[in-house]
Amino acid sequence: MKKAITLTVNGDRRELYVATHHSLLDVIRNELGLMGTHRGCDTGNCGACTIQVDGLAMNACLLLAVDYDGSDILTIEGVAQEGALHPVQRALVEKGGIQCGFCTPGMVMNALALLADDPHPTEADIRARLSGNLCRCTGYAKIVEAVGSVQ
């Protein structure tokens, strides 16, 4: 079964006709072709698909698209403004927080939400908030350092 929904994605209004069992992740990747939001587990454990929905960081794999009709969605593609990386992205690049990079967009989206809530988080705050974003390459040290440097 399909249903018509409207989403605002990275500032653009998109009218979509989506299967009722498809997640926002399915729609973002397969209908909108925004491949920066990654599918790592489909069970809400890895955080690679983290997006912002009406300003809140959420796992797109856990959200049925039809439940978010009318929502304002921000994906990683909407973060860099006019080609300039956001300071969180730039810090991840410069501090070595990116290896394979598959977790990176989700890390960025969650870190942005963290910094919006608390512009001066402690290292423990950063580690706690990013604990829903798994990384297999970096051991997190340089990710935590990068996020902590953006204050």
Partner: peptide
């Protein structure tokens, strides 16, 4: 390649 990875 980090900037490409950071920006999706």
């Amino acid at each position: 390649d980090a900037a490409d990875k950071a920006s999706g």
